[in-house]
Computed example of a mutant assay.
Amino acid sequence: MAICKAEALVIRKFDFRETSIIVEFFTREFGRLKGILKGIRSNPKKFGSTLEPFSCNEIVFYRSRNSEIHLVSQCDLRDNFLEIRSDLKKINLASFFMELTSALLAPEDKHEEVFELALSCLKDMSLAADPARIINIAQIKLLKLSGFKPHFDSCVLCDSKIDEYAKFSTAFGGLLCFKCAYRDSNRHAVLKGTVASIRHIEKSDWQNSQRLGLSPLVKEELDMMLNRFVLFHLEKKLKTARFI
């Protein structure tokens, strides 16, 4: 077994037998992985963290060649994001984003850009007056980085430029032009402001995307479109989605 060290965000944890827990981590160095912490329930002081969901930790683990679950020998807390934990809405949004990250990424596939995105999202959401806006922006960037990005640059079917008329197709995964709209009977109209906002967020870095103003109508439409898109293409409903 190789000894590895990683910066890790906690996605979820669950009890294992009488004294241990299994934790799903999202790490900077190794992507998404599972680790077992033996004896932590009988002796919580054995590790330097209680491993709360979406907390940031530094872990040392023995990487197994024969199992998807690795033995964690050391865990030290870096950031517990206390400002998020004092606000139920922020807790639900952070939990949703971590579950979405888990659903979109394959196990043990390194995604350092996504890790940086998740860390920036949690840090900015800690002090944000409008945490839902932070999650909207992070969700758009996550879909792009993970390869699930809806197509908003042109018509998803014929690649023609779209200026005024725009319909969104969840099934085809993008915008439809006037000529192609008939191909999806469940298409729906989308505001120009929503399309422009998504394009801006996709092309901007994290800090610049935070400066974008989102009207209440655009935010409402973003929520609807993103949630429908994720549900359709993941073919399952995220457990945390009902709380946001």
Rank of each mutant, 00 (worst) to 15 (best):
189 A>E: 14
131 P>D: 07
72 V>A: 05
75 C>M: 10
170 T>W: 02
194 T>E: 03
76 D>R: 00
91 I>R: 10
125 M>S: 07
167 K>R: 14
59 I>A: 05
141 K>V: 04
194 T>K: 03
101 T>R: 01
95 S>G: 13
150 P>Q: 07
60 V>G: 09
83 E>I: 01
96 F>V: 05
149 K>Q: 15
126 S>F: 02
133 R>D: 15
85 R>P: 03
183 R>I: 06
114 V>I: 15
65 R>I: 00
180 C>P: 05
122 L>E: 02
185 S>D: 14
113 E>L: 12
80 N>Y: 09
158 C>V: 07
82 L>E: 15
87 D>V: 05
155 C>N: 03
89 K>H: 10
104 L>D: 12
188 H>K: 15
65 R>Y: 00
180 C>W: 02
76 D>S: 12
114 V>M: 03
90 K>C: 04
111 H>N: 15
121 C>K: 04
184 D>V: 03
121 C>D: 06
167 K>P: 04
58 E>I: 10
118 A>K: 05
118 A>S: 14
156 V>A: 08
167 K>F: 00
192 K>H: 12
59 I>G: 06
88 L>V: 14
193 G>K: 02
96 F>G: 02
106 A>M: 09
99 E>P: 06
132 A>V: 10
112 E>S: 13
117 L>W: 03
84 I>S: 02
59 I>V: 09
123 K>P: 05
189 A>H: 04
68 E>N: 13
120 S>D: 15
56 C>T: 08
59 I>M: 10
54 F>Q: 00
52 E>N: 11
191 L>Q: 14
150 P>E: 04
49 S>A: 13
134 I>L: 08
159 D>M: 08
146 S>T: 15
177 C>E: 07
